[in-house]
């Protein structure tokens, strides 16, 4: 019994150390996260109403920090089960991306992967229409 517990104790620290060292050696680890809010101009604009039409796991759009993404292809590969993602489909999902439901941000790598699914920018329809009315 004592030997088993001690073995697991040592294995635990070995595993943690391995993960930390791997992470430190990984070339991308310390890269700056791309700033999502500086989206390139000239991309198609979508309103929240349009995004809301894509609210299923098979057809899943999300708005994250002002950018619209179509992550339908990525859903099956996401580490958390799909039911965790489902409530965020078709809406503003910055909170989900930033907090993962447990107050921890997604990794830099995850943010970079997200960029592959960028569709365009969120157009704030109401503001635009107000501007159109001359206010």
């Amino acid at each position: 019994m004592k030997k088993l517990v001690y073995t697991v104790f040592v294995a635990f620290w070995a595993a943690i150390a391995t993960l930390v060292v791997l992470n430190a050696l990984s070339p991308d680890a310390n890269e700056e996260r791309p700033r999502a809010e500086v989206g390139p101009d000239g991309l198609a604009g979508y309103s929240l109403t349009e995004v809301a039409e894509h609210d299923t796991l098979e057809d899943c759009w999300m708005v994250i920090e002002g950018v619209v993404y179509d992550i339908s292809d990525y859903v099956p590969r996401h580490p958390a089960p799909p039911r965790v993602l489902a409530p965020w489909c078709g809406r503003e999902a910055t909170e989900g991306m930033r907090t993962k439901g447990d107050n921890s941000d997604h990794s830099a790598r995850a943010w970079r992967m997200l960029e592959r699914y960028r569709l365009g920018r969120l157009v704030e329809a109401e503001q635009a229409s107000r501007r159109g009315n001359g206010t």
Binding site: L19, V20, N23, N103, S104, D105, A110
Partner: peptide
């Protein structure tokens, strides 16, 4: 699977994530 940084992030998140 999505990189060692994701694994280490889970283990050592920002301090604001106090439950971890």
């Amino acid at each position: 699977g999505s990189g060692p940084d994701a694994a280490v992030q889970l283990l050592f998140p920002p301090l604001s994530n106090w439950p971890i």
